[in-house]
């Protein structure tokens, strides 16, 4: 078992290394001279002499060869130093650390709500196939899959903030600010999750152990919420972790729309501001989150279902 985890952790490191390298070189072959950008940022719209740009470039080490810059950056990363934001001058890690909790909270709350709503609905849809509830959830799911998240966000803002004036649509000052973005994320996730829960539950309902449970006279609720629920836990958990990742990835759009101070917004600003160090750090950060969650889910599996096989 420990060997398995060691292998997984090694894999993770290789993946992260790949991500670092790729972003580094991609960034350097895209347009936009970072030194000029810093200069513009520092001195505003004034005329900037080439000397100033050169000075800034050498200060930031931007005029060395690509390979030297690359190894230098690798070394720094290994010591935990991701550099300073080219725009604000604050260490990028500090900025990420400040923003990430907002994104994390949004993703976690929405996935949690999704799980609570979708699991019972999915199980009931499976138990009573093609009945009313099943038809309704199927309709909602098909509807949700075809709506892009920014569109839904705008509709929600229009209804709840503009028309009804019930909820704030901007920023994050108090808990009511959570409601709209969480709602958008949860609505987008539930329809699909219900269908996943349903199809998994149908498979389990046809299993021999559920048939035996019926033959023993157990009640429908006992069968659905003990026998079936326990066994859909792992597949549904996998799916939810995927939804969680998608919520974090999708944060770039949602956070921009809701002016949410998370890493999605940070990323968007970094991209538009050509803040190379920040972009590099964020890409690495996203990659690390994906790896970490995969690893965590794997560990959870083993914790929950110790009979899982380690042979690959």
């Amino acid at each position: 078992m420990w060997q398995y985890f060691l292998k997984r952790i090694l894999n993770t490191i290789i993946v992260l290394f790949g991500a670092v390298t790729l972003t580094f070189f991609f960034m350097h072959f895209t347009e936009g001279d970072p030194a000029t950008i810093i200069a513009l940022d520092k001195y505003g719209g004034q005329l900037i002499s080439p000397e100033v740009i050169d000075r800034l470039a050498s200060e930031e080490g931007l005029n060395r060869s690509i390979f030297v810059q690359y190894t230098g950056w690798l070394k720094l990363i290994c010591t935990g130093d991701f550099g300073h934001s080219l725009r604000s001058g604050i260490p990028v890690l500090d900025e990420i650390r400040l923003c990430f909790p907002y994104t994390f909270a949004l993703a976690l709350i929405s996935v949690f709500i999704t799980a609570i709503v979708a699991t019972p609905l999915g199980i009931y849809s499976a138990a009573y196939q093609n009945r009313f509830l099943d038809r309704i959830t199927r309709f909602i799911a098909s509807f949700q899959v075809s709506i892009p998240n920014f569109y839904l966000a705008i509709i929600f803002i229009f209804i709840f903030s503009v028309k009804l004036k019930l909820l704030p649509s901007f920023g994050c000052d108090n808990p009511t600010h959570f409601i709209l973005p969480v709602m958008v994320l949860a609505v987008l996730q539930t329809g699909f999750t219900i269908r996943i829960v349903r199809s998994t539950a149908i498979e389990i309902l046809e299993s021999e152990y559920v048939q035996f449970a019926f033959a023993r006279g157990l009640s429908m609720n006992r069968i659905l919420f003990v026998h079936v629920l326990k066994n859909i836990f792992i597949p549904v958990l996998t799916f939810l972790s995927l939804q969680f990742l998608m919520a974090i990835e999708g944060s770039i759009i949602i956070e921009t729309i809701f002016a949410w101070p998370g890493i999605g917004k940070l990323f968007q600003e970094a991209v538009f501001g050509r803040d190379f160090t920040m972009i590099q750090a964020l890409v690495l950060f996203f990659a690390a989150i994906v790896c970490a969650i995969n690893l965590l889910v794997d560990m959870l599996y083993i914790f929950i279902n110790r009979s899982i096989s380690f042979i690959e």
Partner: peptide
Amino acid sequence: RLYGRKIGFLPQSIASLNPLL
């Protein structure tokens, strides 16, 4: 009402045991 109480069932294989109970 008869199942379990009056009429029981003995299945063929141990796949009839819920692996998580």
